[in-house]
């Protein structure tokens, strides 16, 4: 298990490592800020999807060990999302135009909402905090479902002419959420609702 955890840890750092290499080699083109922001955001989305893959993997393989990777994957997704937001503010906005950006731009609004939803999940992912929220932990962590949908919208809304890539990501998200609805009942997808189990 420890070996697997280390492997996943290293793999999850790979996008960041490759990005540093690209920056060092000047391989990001004339608009590096845009390229850095985009690749961090995409890494966050991909890790969010991989986090959502854990439950179905457990169910399909019958191996409960997968679940022990989930917190790390979720936190990595949050880590990349945080870097993405910081880098967007610094390299794209230059900390200007903040009010207009966060009130008038639909794709920014949905992205910011998704990020806000991920914050309580990251904060309550440690044992002590888990104990504090108790029975609320599960309903709270179902916020990852709407967050995933909002992140997908955040990408789709920026596509200008070719939506093929985001259609593919959308299908993956649909399958991941659909499997849960199919197996556990669709009510299980609603966040912040306490269930008996």
């Amino acid at each position: 298990m420890t070996g697997l955890k280390v492997l996943v840890f290293v793999l999850a750092l790979l996008p960041l490592g490759l990005l540093f290499l690209d920056i060092k080699n000047g391989a990001l083109g004339p608009d590096p800020g845009q390229a850095i922001t985009e690749s961090l955001g995409l890494a966050a989305f991909q890790l969010l999807l991989i986090t959502l893959l854990i439950s179905p993997l457990k169910k399909l393989t019958g191996w409960a060990g997968w679940v022990r990777l989930r917190r790390m994957l979720g936190l990595f997704s949050f880590f990349y999302a945080s870097l993405h937001v910081l880098v967007f503010l610094q390299l794209i906005l230059g900390w200007g135009d903040l009010w207009a950006t966060f009130t008038k731009r639909p794709y920014i609004i949905v992205g910011a909402l998704a990020f806000l939803m991920l914050i309580p999940l990251a904060v309550t992912s440690f044992r002590s905090a888990m104990k504090k929220v108790g029975r609320w932990w599960k309903p709270l962590h179902r916020l990852i479902y709407p967050a995933g949908v909002l992140v997908w919208l955040h990408f789709l809304w920026q596509a200008r002419a070719d939506i093929g890539e985001m259609v593919a990501y959308g299908l993956v998200l649909l399958v991941l959420l659909g499997l849960r609805g199919h197996w556990n009942g669709w009510g299980d997808l609603i966040p912040l609702r306490k269930t008996a189990r």
């Binding site: 920056i23 990001l28 004339p30 608009d31 590096p32 800020g33 850095i36 610094q90 390299l91 794209i92 906005l93 230059g94």
Partner: peptide, 8 residues
């Protein structure tokens, strides 16, 4: 453009 890596 070209824009710097750290400063837009």
């Amino acid at each position: 453009l070209p824009s710097g890596v750290l400063q837009p």
